[in-house]
Design a protein around this nucleic acid. Structure first.
Length: 436
DNA sequence: TATCCACAGGAAATCAGGGTGT
DNA sequence: ACACCCTGATTTCCTGTGGATA
């Protein structure tokens, strides 16, 4: 029943909100221009790289098969953007038939089977291959037939983004090897494989046969410095923002922040967009440095919250265990064993959740480290064994706020686990404190 | 100086859940 | 109904290890 104590809900007038929103300042002209997927007409400071990609792919114009090649470089250095840019330019040349470009993000399409299925489904434009069920070699044969039929004597560029993700997986080398050898099995159509990776050393995990075919040619993308980032941002800001809304120093501040983060252009663009959004939301006519500073904070928080929300329930419970340990024993040391103990207690309180083995928990702890939520340094305590010293790297309140939004975890968040008072834990804690 | 703790983390096996074609 | 395929999560089994302690 709705009563007057539900004022907040009743007082929000959505129609008035929309009206005000539309009446408010027009910060953006084309917000999308700040998205990572947007391909601008110009890519500043990537001339060398564009030229190399153009050189590799140019022979397609004469009907030859371009060599397979790799693009290396940290995140936000314009690898994908460069490929997309060149692909657009190439399409503007007189090419008949037009080449196919199939983009595969290996962190999303993450198994050999799905890569084949994705290529197949992209070419047909329909979900012809089910997400699972068929033997790989059958799909491979079907794909060969389809490519010859649909692409004819044209060229198909296969762009494997984050190729390291697949290379490190079981069966990953086989699929890459098969893909590099597509041309030998095709009668009409030609293919060119382009691998994109932000790990410079990922070739180590590749099969030598794949390296010899894919890694012979490569392009290294270097990070942008602050000056270059400013150029990129100005370029995009011109398209994205309405005239005169950007305050003085906003772009250079974004660039400076991103330059600290290893010259990541994607970060810089994200920051600028978020600052714009914040200004818009507070009905401000101008995007000022103040909003950039707020954007830095919020982006960090957004990233953490989104990550935690997306984690499997088991990982969330493990994080809850670490949270409870830091909350109730702020001065004590947190080690793997304690996390295991508290986790075990929490699991018994949450219905429908099976208790995981220590081995699995160990992996989840490593995932949390990778996500930047905790730090865990392996340390030897001599006679007391080797373990990890775990510390929360994120504000306690933020963790609490995020975990409380997860129904099953919320229940266990407020009670102090009884294991925290156990003699064993207190005793060990005292020893470890001295050892560290 | 050998011992031994409490784990770390690699490799392979297993399981459940989604499918296939015949 | 059946044999078989693929995936992702997890378990099982295992070997390795740094340094305080006896």
């Amino acid at each position: 029943m709705l009563t007057s104590n539900n004022k907040d809900n009743l007082n929000f007038n959505i129609d008035r909100f929309y009206k005000n929103y539309l009446k408010g300042p027009n910060i953006f002209r084309k917000r999308d221009a700040l998205d990572p997927s947007y391909v601008p007409d110009e890519l500043p400071h990537r001339d060398k790289e564009i030229r190399k990609v153009a050189e590799f792919t140019a022979c397609a114009l004469k009907g030859d098969t371009p060599p397979n090649f790799l693009c290396y470089g940290p995140t936000g250095t314009g690898k994908t953007a460069t490929i997309r840019y060149v692909s657009q330019k190439l399409a503007q040349q007189t090419l008949t038939p037009q080449p196919w470009w199939i983009y595969i993000n290996c962190s999303v399409v993450s198994t050999p089977y799905r890569i084949l299925a994705h290529i197949y489904n992209t070419i047909t434009g329909k979900e012809k291959i089910p997400p699972t069920g068929l033997p790989k070699d059958i799909i491979f044969k079907k794909l060969l037939g389809l490519m010859d039929q649909m692409i004819g004597n044209g060229i198909c560029f296969l762009v494997l983004d984050e190729i390291d993700m697949i290379a490190e997986k079981k069966g990953g080398n086989e699929i890459l090897y098969d893909l590099t050898r597509l041309n030998e099995n095709l009668d009409l159509c030609k293919t060119c494989l382009i691998g994109i990776s932000n790990k410079l050393k990922f070739q180590d995990s590749l099969d030598p046969r794949v390296v010899s075919s894919l890694g012979k040619e490569h392009i290294v993308f270097s990070i942008y410095n602050a000056g270059q980032l400013i150029d990129i941002l100005e370029n995009r800001a011109l398209i994205a923002f309405s005239e005169g809304v950007l305050g003085k120093g906003v772009i250079s501040l974004c660039a400076a922040y991103a330059a600290q983060e290893h010259g990541d252009a994607r970060k810089a663009l994200q920051l600028l967009k978020k600052a714009g959004n914040l200004a818009e939301r507070s009905q401000n006519k101008e995007v000022t440095e103040h909003f950039v500073n707020r954007a830095v904070n919020e982006l960090e928080k957004d990233h953490i919250t989104e990550y935690i929300k997306g984690m499997p329930i088991q990982a969330q419970i493990i994080l809850a265990a670490i949270y409870l340990l830091s909350k109730w024993n702020p001065n004590s040391v947190i080690i793997t064993g304690f996390v295991n103990d508290v986790y075990a207690e929490l699991v018994t309180k949450i219905p429908g959740i099976k208790r995981l083995t220590k081995r699995r928990i160990s992996d989840y702890i490593n995932d949390l480290v990778l996500a930047g939520i905790i730090t865990a340094d392996t340390k030897s305590m001599g006679h007391y064994g080797r373990t990890k010293i775990i510390k929360l790297d994120v504000d306690l309140e933020l963790i609490k706020k995020t975990l409380s939004k997860i129904p099953k975890v919320r229940e266990v968040l407020n009670n102090k686990p009884s294991i925290l008072q156990s003699d064993r834990l207190v005793y060990k804690n005292n020893i470890f404190k001295k050892l560290i």
